[in-house]
């Protein structure tokens, strides 16, 4: 008697899931098609796409930073404050103190990581909710930024940084875009294929279950917060390189768009999970809409209607597809 091997059974393709995964991508393509019709000859040019892609790197990096603690179930509301402080640190240390630009960048990144570590310490040692700690430390950092800058905008940051961020182009697109894309791919690989990334996902899905399975939950959450601080600081460095200057307030406005991108991104590619590819896609979906509307001459309020409306409608539709199950991002 010989055993006959069972024929391999392939799981049937879940078309609904596939549709949900790529719905935002399809919506983006539809949006591009719509604007191509409405703005013939101008919208569908490489110049337009170079402009769209090249301008959003700061938001991409900030949103990618945020999604690490979000995946572990923590909110980092200090991210934009770290961004602003980091940009100001680069400006003050480079312009006022005369540091070489490389040293300024290292200082800024280290500061971001230290703020992340402080967030982690307060959250994990004192068992305080991340919303409270990061809100508090973010506000503290805003005060530090005002103090460091004397409430002034500082221009004249080394052109080496400006060159490396926005003037250098690859395929006609400013280098900043490629940094954001590279970071996105690295995070995607890390979250999908590395042990550390899987641990982060488990911790976000259920801390107690993760702990019982031998995962060091505190260490994983701390690493996510430290990385979030460092990546927010990197976004600040790009912000400084993009504008060649730093001001103590305006970067704060990036916090909500970054969260919006992370949440909208969680409806795409890997629905129900914060994921780098979805986040990248959502940033460019939103900016494509804003750019098209601007080119059509839409007023400022129409852009806000699109931004907020697209976010709510996309998340709501995604919920309809999954039969309104309670959300469990992580």
């Amino acid at each position: 008697m010989t055993a006959t091997p069972l024929p391999a059974v392939r799981a049937p393709i879940d078309w609904k899931l596939q549709a949900e995964r790529f719905a935002l991508l399809a919506a983006w393509a539809a949006l591009i098609g719509l604007f191509a019709v409405l703005i013939p000859g101008t919208f569908l040019t490489w110049r337009t796409f170079s402009s769209i892609l090249g301008s959003q790197a700061v938001l991409v990096v900030l949103a990618l930073g945020l999604l690490l603690p979000l995946t572990a179930g923590d909110f980092d509301l200090s991210a934009a404050s770290v961004l602003v402080f980091s940009a100001m640190f680069v400006a003050v240390s480079n312009v006022t103190w005369g540091w070489p630009i490389g040293l300024s960048l290292l200082g800024a990144l280290a500061t971001g990581a230290i703020v992340g570590a402080l967030n982690a310490w307060f959250i994990l040692f004192f068992r305080i909710h991340s919303l409270i700690v990061t809100l508090g430390l973010g506000t503290f950092l805003n005060g530090m930024t005002l103090w460091l800058s004397g409430s002034q905008t500082i221009s004249g940051i080394s052109m080496t940084l400006v060159d490396a961020v926005v003037i250098t182009r690859i395929l006609g697109i400013p280098a900043a875009f490629w940094y954001g894309l590279a970071l996105c791919l690295v995070l995607w690989y890390a979250l999908e294929w590395s042990m550390a990334g899987r641990r982060l996902l488990f911790v976000g899905r259920g801390r107690e279950v993760a702990r019982l399975n031998g995962i060091s939950v505190d260490r994983t959450r701390a690493a996510a917060l430290i990385l979030s601080g460092a990546l927010s600081a990197l976004a600040g460095v790009l912000y400084a390189g993009m504008t060649g200057s730093a001001d103590p307030v305006s970067g704060q406005g990036l916090l909500l768009p970054a969260f919006a991108a992370a949440f909208l991104g969680a409806t795409a590619i890997y629905p129900g999970r914060f994921n780098p590819l979805g986040t990248l896609l959502s940033v460019y979906f939103l900016i494509t809409g804003i750019t098209g509307l601007s080119m059509l001459g839409a007023a400022a309020h129409v852009q806000s209607l699109f931004y907020g409306g697209a976010l709510v409608v996309a998340v709501a539709l995604s919920q309809l597809v999954r039969k309104r199950q309670p959300q469990n991002f992580g």
């Binding site: 101008t42 750019t291 400022a300």
Partner: peptide, 17 residues
Amino acid sequence: TEWATKIQSGVQSALLA
């Protein structure tokens, strides 16, 4: 409140248009 997020994209869009 939207200078940081909208001026850059607004200027780029206007120049493209």
